[in-house]
């Protein structure tokens, strides 16, 4: 069956577009519940820059953005490399408890509620 919106020869599904109408922010809200300060992140990237696993794909900034936008598919691969060394937390200008957020996120990704 041809998708309805195949007018231009491509489909909206799987497109690059962020669809806020379909965003599922439940995981984000659960995490915020646990670490409220984490909403203060201004996406400066220091955490990624200093990260011991930054070159291995660990990216808290991006993980936070995805959570906020309700896209959870890539979260596991984005946080798996974290070694919990805690450097990120020491450099964050907004005092986000990054290490604790990542820890809880890792657990929540394994313990669906």
């Amino acid at each position: 069956m041809k998708p309805a919106n195949d007018k231009w020869g491509f489909r909206a599904e799987g497109s690059e577009q962020i669809n806020l109408d379909k965003a599922d922010s439940s995981l984000y809200r659960r995490l915020l519940n646990r670490e409220p300060g984490f909403a203060a992140c201004l996406f400066c990237g220091s955490c990624r820059a200093t990260c011991t696993s930054g070159n291995e794909g660990m990216n808290f900034r991006l993980a936070h953005l995805l959570l906020q936008r309700g896209e959870t598919a890539r979260l596991k691969s984005l946080t798996d490399p974290c070694l919990l060394c805690g450097k990120c937390t020491l450099v964050c200008p907004r005092n986000v408890n990054i290490r604790a957020v990542v820890y809880n996120l890792k657990i929540m990704l394994h313990e669906p509620f």
Binding site: F43, C44, G45, S46, R48, A49, G54, N59
Partner: peptide
């Protein structure tokens, strides 16, 4: 766009900095 997280000195006295290029999404 990215905040520098740290800097260190190389043997020739130059400075190496680390940041994330947040628009590219990759460490620099």
């Amino acid at each position: 766009r990215g905040r520098v997280s740290e800097a260190s000195q190389m043997y020739d006295g130059t400075i190496q900095l680390k940041a994330e290029d947040t628009l590219m999404g990759r460490p620099v």
